[in-house]
Amino acid sequence: MNIFRFLGDMSHILSFLLLLHKIVGGKSAAGISLRTAEMYAIVFCTRYIDLLWNFASLYNYLLKLLFIGASLTIVYFMRYGPSQKATYNADEDAFPVQYLIAPCAVLGVLINQDHSSPFEMVWAFSIYLEAVAILPQLFLLQKQGEVENLTSHYVFALGAYRALYLLNWMFRFMTEPDYQQRIVWLSGLVQTALYCDFFYHYYQSKKGGLNKSVKLP
């Protein structure tokens, strides 16, 4: 464990807390993409299936349960919560996710760390899917132009978590002799690159005060 990965996990937890606060606490799904929420639920349910046999560390075990639980809770409330459904904009949340899921599934089968292990294929699929899972959310924000304050912090924290993981992989590459994780490194780069435009607008709007809404052109 290193500080970058720890801060990354904390930022990820923060993004969940912000989203849960908005959706469950604030009873509003305005500006939130259900498609992104559902893809994240797929990402965690596939990647953390090793909960059944891998007890690498209690820390990992607890956070995996937390991430699966939180992402399923968010999907549940967005799909079945009365006031959440009323504030969710289905026609604007229209990114064709099948064009994201199918290629990731093919890539997961073709490019993974052990072609003899089905779990490795599923694991690689989840890494690739996570890299593009934020697209429907960014697409929705772009369409709406204005980003509500809490939503902007949620997206920022979610983007920051993987950016911190990039630092974690760099650190591990430099400090651990034969550590190399090309799959997560490349996917993490793509994932973080997708946030660059949002990060820029987030910084522009927040430097005038934390609770200004973010404007996307």
Partner: peptide, 10 residues
Amino acid sequence: AMKRALHDEL
């Protein structure tokens, strides 16, 4: 072959 990466990260 690539070293089988133990999945010790989230």
